[in-house]
Simulated scan of single mutants.
Amino acid sequence: MLDRMTHPDASRPLNVRTSTALITGASSGIGESLARRLAAHGADLILVARNEARLSALAAELRGRCHVQVHVLPADLNRPGAAADLHAAVQARGLNVDILVNNAGLGSYGEFRTQPPAEIDRMIAVNVSALTALTRAFLPDMLARGRGRVLNVASTAAFQPGPMMAVYYATKAYVLSFSEAVAEEVTGSGVSVTALCPGPVQTGFQAVSQLHESDLLSGPARLTILSADEVARLGVQGMLRGQRVVVAGRLNRVQTLLPRLLPRAVMTRLIARVQARRH
C-alpha cells in the first residue's frame, strides 16, 4: 500500500530527543496535534502560525508538561518573503532544524470562476510557494549534517482533480509530487521526505473552506473522517520510519487507488458529482 513505501534511509533512525522540529500552522488542527506528538517524543519545537497568542499558550503548556524547549515565531506565510524571513529568524537564534513540518494550508469551496483572485493567490502562496521555499531553505542544512526529516502535509485530494475545489486539489497534487521527487533526490543522505495525505479531519478547516457543504463530508460517499490526533500519530510514525507517502485511514487508502482504476474523465465527473452542493 502507499503508506508502506519506505525511504532507503529508514534504517538510519533520527533521535527525536536531540532534535528540533519546526511546525507551520501549529496553532490549531493537525499542526497543533503534530506539535503535541513531537513534544511527547522529546523534540524541542519551533511553532509557526499567525496567531501568536495561541502559539504562546501551546508553548507554555508543552514546556511544562513535556519539559522541552519551545520557541514561538509568529509568521504569515502568505506574505512575500515570509519563508526567507522565517529561516533567517531561526538562524539568528542559533537553532538547527532537524525536522521540518510543512503543515500550514488553506482551502476554499466553490466554482473556480467565482473565487476571488486574492483567495486563489493566498492558497497558492501558502500551500505551494511557502512550502517549497521552506523546504529549499532548511533541506541543505539537514543534508550537510547527514540527518533530518521533512514532513509535508498533502491530502487525499492530491490523487485526483477536484471540481468545486480546483485550486486546493491542484496544490495538494503539487505537494505530493514535489515530496516524492525530492525524497528520491536525497536517497542515501540520511534525510527523508514524507507526504502525509489525510482525508477530511475533525478540525476547523472544513468551516473555513466551506467543505461542510460538500457531499464528501455529509453524503453517502463521505470520506473517512479521522481526528487530528490520529492523523498526527500516523504522520509522525511514518515520517520517523522514512515512509515516502502516508495515507491516513484504511478507507482513504482504498479511495486513493480509484484514479488508477477509472479513466481520468470518469474520475473527474465522479468527484464533481460528489463535491456538488446539496440542495
Score class of each variant (00 low, 15 high):
D85E: 15
V254W: 14
V153Q: 02
E180V: 03
L2K: 03
D121T: 03
R250K: 10
D229Q: 15
M123N: 06
G107W: 00
P116A: 12
R93M: 01
S129K: 09
A83I: 05
R17Q: 11
A53Y: 07
L223D: 00
E119F: 06
V90H: 10
G190K: 11
F159Q: 01
A39N: 02
N78Q: 15
N127D: 04
T20D: 05
R50W: 08
L261E: 08
I271Q: 08
P163K: 07
I30T: 01
A75T: 10
S189F: 00
A92R: 07
S189N: 00
A89Q: 04
G81L: 01
R264H: 14
L176T: 07
T114L: 14
S108M: 04
S19V: 00
M267D: 09
G148P: 02
A207I: 03
R54Q: 14
Q115T: 11
A75P: 11
A53P: 02
V247D: 06
L100H: 10
G64Y: 11
G64F: 11
I99Q: 11
Q243K: 11
H67A: 15
A57C: 09
T203H: 08
M239V: 00
R149Q: 14
D215E: 14
H87F: 05
G94Y: 03
H7R: 09
Q160Y: 01
P220Y: 01
